[in-house]
């Protein structure tokens, strides 16, 4: 049996949707037994949610006031203490998982695979490298404990069922460090859907020319119920917040509909969107590389076309 431990990402009250995708990835491993580990100040609500995901066999909770913030230095030794006896330790390939999982791997002395996109066996996985320009199949020796982050855009979310997995509380005897302290989080509050899990995403690039101009995407986003993303060029230029960046070093997304406005389509951007079901590109430059991968391309000025689309979609 392959025992897989998934480290839950959550905001203290809700489970991050990425975790249901990690569960799906874990279930692709033959003969899998899946445990979700919830570290929180008060894990009850998140644990109850995790327990209803199809394919979850058990939920383990660790309650500690120190877990109110997801600090890798605090969480890693606790996960490492729980992880002995598990063949695989998974986390999502979000900034939470990217920050935390390698720290766990080092404490366990285990190798890590980042951005697992497909499972071939319990010891063989596929992952993208070179900004997605190559896919490598990697084999880990049987019997080696493996840590991995799951490329969430590659997996459907496991559904929720009526059955509930048993929840047990672990009490750990781990000394937690005090050398890392949370100060603040400044989040651009938005009532839009979350970029990483939205069904529809519209993004803007350098063509917008200013932060004010970038706001013309808002009306269309509201009409479509879409999240708003941005290219690296737009973020670097200050038109959009850094957490809106889509691409190799930003967010990797897989919406049903992706609409790129004024984005030329650098390979680093394309790697973040190529799992989208349908890609629409609008760009003034008929030669822009984004048209090479777009399902629907339209050559034109974003400042004319966006208001037109808003009106037509009505």
């Amino acid at each position: 049996m392959n025992k897989i431990l998934i480290v839950a990402e959550h905001d203290g009250s809700r489970l991050n949707p990425a975790i249901a995708k990690c569960v799906r990835c874990a279930r692709d491993i033959p003969d899998a037994n899946v445990t979700v580990l919830v570290l929180a100040a008060d894990p009850a609500a998140v644990a109850a949610e995790a327990a209803t995901i199809n394919g979850v066999d058990a939920v383990v909770t660790v309650a500690n006031p120190a877990n109110a913030q997801a600090l890798a230095a605090t969480l890693a030794p606790q996960v490492a203490a729980v992880a002995s006896g598990y063949s695989h330790v998974f986390g999502p390939s979000t900034t939470f998982g990217k920050d935390l999982m390698p720290r766990i791997a080092a404490l366990l002395g285990a190798p890590q695979l980042s951005d697992v996109m497909a499972v071939e066996s319990a010891t063989r996985f596929r992952r993208p490298i070179y900004a997605g320009n190559a896919i490598v199949t990697v084999e880990v020796a049987a019997g080696t404990q493996l840590v991995a982050t799951v490329r969430v855009a590659s997996f459907e979310a496991a559904a929720r069922g009526n059955a509930t997995a048993p929840i047990t509380a672990a009490s750990l005897d781990v000394v937690l460090p005090s050398h890392t302290r949370f100060v603040s989080l400044s989040a651009a509050r938005s009532d839009r859907p979350d970029l990483q899990t939205a069904n529809r995403v519209i993004s803007g690039g350098r063509a917008f020319g200013s932060a004010d101009n970038f706001k013309i995407l808002d009306g269309l986003a509201t009409k479509l119920g879409a999240a708003v993303g941005a290219s690296r060029a737009a973020v670097d230029a200050g038109y959009a917040a850094s957490d809106m960046q889509v691409g190799q070093t930003g967010k990797i997304i897989a919406p049903e509909l992706y609409m790129a406005f004024g984005i030329s389509g650098a390979i680093q951007h394309l790697t973040g969107i190529k799992d989208a079901r349908t890609i629409v590109a609008v760009n003034k430059d008929a030669e822009a590389p984004i048209f090479e991968i777009a399902d629907y391309g339209l050559v034109g000025d974003v400042f004319q076309i966006i208001p037109e689309l808003e009106r037509l979609i009505g």
Binding site: E139, V140, A141, I279, I293, Y296
Partner: peptide, 20 residues
Amino acid sequence: QLKAIRYEPPPQRSKGVMVK
């Protein structure tokens, strides 16, 4: 500890249609 078995190019998206 991690052996690369095989490298492949990524699956290509096919070029779609241009609308007017």
